[in-house]
Amino acid sequence: MPISPAVSRLPLLPDRYARPSLPSFMAYLVAFAFAMVSIQNSGLSLERLLVGLPSISRMLDQMFPPDLERISSIGWSLLQTFQMAVAGTVLGIVLSLPLAILAARNISPHPVVYVLSRGLISFFRTVPDLVWALIFVIAVGLGPAAGTMAITIDTIGFCGRFFAEAMEETDAAPAEALNSIGASRTGMIFSAVIPQAFPSFINSSLFSLEKATRSSVVLGLVGAGGIGIELKVAMDLFSYDVASTIILSVFMLVLVVENASTYLRSKII
């Protein structure tokens, strides 16, 4: 029998939009108002932007053509910057793994250990890398060691969390199969949990290398090694043509690292 739309009664359709409850409506309102006030207080104004335009254009004008005379010294310090990123990331990854094992709910040896290691990882992650750099500059002095340490800590904060979550998300059955035949906890972790989490480890590690490359540039601004300090000096001396060379080469480095990492990701996973 053909269904006649006129006759058949439609089941009750849900509303297009659910009406918010009063408390959530109030919350939206407060959030919206706060966003508006924040924009207001930032001091942004079209007027100031217009006034600033000539000086920006003057700067852009002096930036081009970039000064290539110091390209080789810039190249070297860019290499040093990248090496800081690589060293910090590698150390960070190596230290993340044991910490992540303690911080993964399904394999952590004890709830107290779990909470403590989760807390440590969160602490590493929530303190900005620039703050870590400032601390390490004071501790070990100016130079790439401070930057490398800052990146290491930052990487532990990032990889520690994502490694732990990757291990928590693994299928428990293969590990239980090993548990049932008397395998040790370490055996289970290394032969059933980590192999399943491995693609995710690679993914997080590559992301953290990209992140470290970008932040290694900024860390130089506080004297923690790398090219950042040269950018700051060039800017302070109004050598915008040198600055533009530095900015462009940083841009190239980040681009290369991001593309290489995308390629590796597709290759390995």
Binding site: A173, A177, P195, Q196, P199
Partner: peptide, 14 residues
């Protein structure tokens, strides 16, 4: 004592 389960006995990526 050996134990064989209904499924998911093996570690998939190995």
């Amino acid at each position: 004592i050996g134990f064989v389960f209904q499924k998911h006995n093996l570690v998939p990526r190995l």
